[in-house]
């Protein structure tokens, strides 16, 4: 076969292959996946924050975090990466009170995410630990991963 024909066929085949993978793909990042990943991560970090503050008796079980997530409002499908995920988190705080907070979540295409909590409830970016040192607040903003 002549080189020009071979190359044209190769380019067309590559293009068709890419188009096929685009068409055949299905979203790996889903609302259920994010909800399943975010709440336990927050609970773990909330326990870590309590440890820094020297508050005893806080465990992931007592925090009992649950969440409900949505991407971009009712008209946008709750799948895929994007900076417009909102998750409503409910948990029991270190004083035993029920708390609700809105977390803004930026999900990347590699299924990792950055979540930021409401500072009025979870505290500012830095907190003063039990030794009197200013340290980063683990639940103010944190990284996580959605299992895929």
């Amino acid at each position: 076969m002549r080189p020009i024909v071979t190359r044209t066929v190769a380019v067309l085949a590559a293009g068709a292959g890419i188009a096929a993978t685009v068409a055949a793909g299905h979203p790996e990042i889903t609302r259920a996946g994010l909800e399943k990943a975010l709440a336990p991560t927050f609970a773990n970090l909330y326990v870590q924050q309590a440890g820094l503050l020297g508050i005893a008796g806080v465990a992931t079980a007592t925090v009992a975090a649950t969440d409900t997530c949505d991407k971009g409002g009712p008209k946008v499908a709750d799948t895929g990466a994007g900076p417009n995920w909102i998750c409503m988190m409910s948990w029991t705080d270190n004083k035993g009170k029920h708390q609700d907070g809105k977390f803004e979540v930026q999900v990347r295409t590699d299924a990792t995410y950055v979540a930021g909590g409401p500072s009025k409830i979870v505290g500012l970016a830095t907190i003063t630990d039990k030794h009197g040192h200013d340290v980063p607040n683990p639940v103010f903003e944190f990284d996580g991963v959605i299992p895929t």
Binding site: T21, G25, P27, E28, G80, T109
Partner: peptide, 12 residues
């Protein structure tokens, strides 16, 4: 790979 919605393409 940073374009959302190309999950299968991204894997390859």
């Amino acid at each position: 790979g940073s374009v959302s919605g190309l999950d299968l393409t991204r894997k390859l």
